[in-house]
Structures are given as C-alpha cells and as structure tokens.
C-alpha cells in the first residue's frame, strides 16, 4: 500500500458515495447513465469473485464489499426506486458494442486461461470503457449537473492515481501488470477531455455545458 493506492481507493469511494447521495437526496437520477452503472456493477462482480477464494486484509475485503454493494444499490435506485426520473431516451449508448469486444479481448489476451483469470481480465477491460455511456449521454444532452461532474472527476482521478501507484510499485517492488497498466491508461485518457472541461468551467463556478 502506498499513498497513490490509498488516495486512489478513497477517490473511487468518494465518487461512488457522491453519486449515491446525489440520487438519494434529489430523489432523481436525471442525467445519470443507468447503463454505465450496470457496467460498473458487472465490473465489480466479475473482479471480486476472489472474495470467495482469497483473503488479503480486512481493508481489502471491506472495500470490495462496499464497492459491490454500492454498485448494486445505485442500479436499484436508478431502475427501481427512482425509475420515473430515469432519462432512458438520452441513455442510448449500445452497450453490446462494449461488452462483446471486451469479452473477446479478455479471452484472447489474459495472463492465464482460467475462468477466474478471464473474468478478472474482462472486468479490467470493461472498467476502462464503462464510463462511455455516461460521457455519451452528456455529449447528447450537452450538459451535466455540477454534482455529476464532481462524481466524474473523482472517478477519473482514481484511475490516474492508480497509474502513479503502478509506477511506484514498479520502482519499489519490481512489480508491473501489463493488462492493468494498459487498460488503466486507456481509462484515464478517456477522461482527459472531461478533466479539461472540469478545470476550465466547473472549478470556475460555471455549469458544464457543451457548445451546440
């Protein structure tokens, strides 16, 4: 555990909590892509199957359980509890265009051809692109609530911090995992455009709206 890992995890946790609280407090999931949230629920489920096979630490187990639990709670709020506020018309990204290639890639490029390994690899690849339905929705409506941009910022920051964590681990532990690093780079790059808008608009007190 290093400082980048820890702040990365906390940033990830903050993102998840911000989104849950936003939906809960406003009693609405307007502007939130339910599809992205389903993808994240799939990501956590396929990655944390190792909860059943290996114990690392209390921190590790509890964070995994919190992430999985919150992911399903978010999906429940969007598709069941506040379904009436869900903006399905604007959430029109075709997720099969992500899941099918990512599934194929996980079968082709993995560390070992074992069910748990393939599912882990699948979750890493899928996470890197899971935010696309959300970004697509924002580009379609041309705007995002400020609280939604805070959520996206924390979520993007988390993977960027993990990149620093991997540099650290490479230097001090001689460890690197090419699959995680490449996918993490892709994931971080997808947020760059958003980071720019966040810094130039949201942090200056303006609402995030895209030019028509």
């Amino acid at each position: 555990m290093n400082v980048f890992r820890l702040t990365g995890d906390l940033s990830h946790l903050a993102a998840i909590i911000i989104l849950l609280l936003k939906i809960w407090k406003s009693r609405s999931c307007a502007g939130i892509s339910g599809k992205s949230q389903i993808l994240f629920a799939i990501v956590f489920t396929t990655r944390y199957l190792d909860l059943l096979t290996s114990f690392i630490s209390l921190y590790n187990t509890s964070m995994k359980l919190i992430y999985v639990g919150c992911a399903y709670a978010t999906v429940y709020l969007i598709y069941v509890k506040f379904r009436a506020t869900y903006d399905g018309n604007h959430d029109s990204f075709r997720v099969e265009f992500l899941i099918v290639p990512v599934g194929g890639l996980a079968v082709l490029i993995n560390h070992s051809f074992a069910p748990l390994e393939i599912l882990w690899t699948f979750s890493i690849y899928l996470e890197s692109v899971a935010i696309l339905p959300q970004l697509f929705m924002i580009s379609k409506t041309g705007e995002a609530e400020t609280i939604t941009t805070h959520y996206l910022f924390c979520l993007g920051l988390y993977r960027a911090l993990y990149l620093f964590n991997w540099v650290w681990r490479f230097y001090f532990e001689g460890f690197f995992d090419m699959i995680a690093i490449v996918a993490g780079l892709v994931q971080t790059v997808l947020y760059c455009d958003f980071f720019y808008l966040y810094v130039t608009k949201v942090l200056k007190g303006k609402k995030l709206s895209l030019p028509a």
């Binding site: 890992r5 995890d9 990830h12 190792d50 290996s54 690392i56 590790n60 964070m63 995994k64 992430y67 560390h111 882990w120 993990y162 964590n165 681990r169 460890f175 995992d177 995680a180």
Partner: peptide, 10 residues
C-alpha cells in the same frame, strides 16, 4: 507475484 497482486488491488 502476479496472482497475488490481482487480489490485492481494487
């Protein structure tokens, strides 16, 4: 150590 790290990171 690949396998271990697999489970260690979130």
């Amino acid at each position: 150590a690949i396998g271990q790290t697999r489970h260690d990171e979130l």
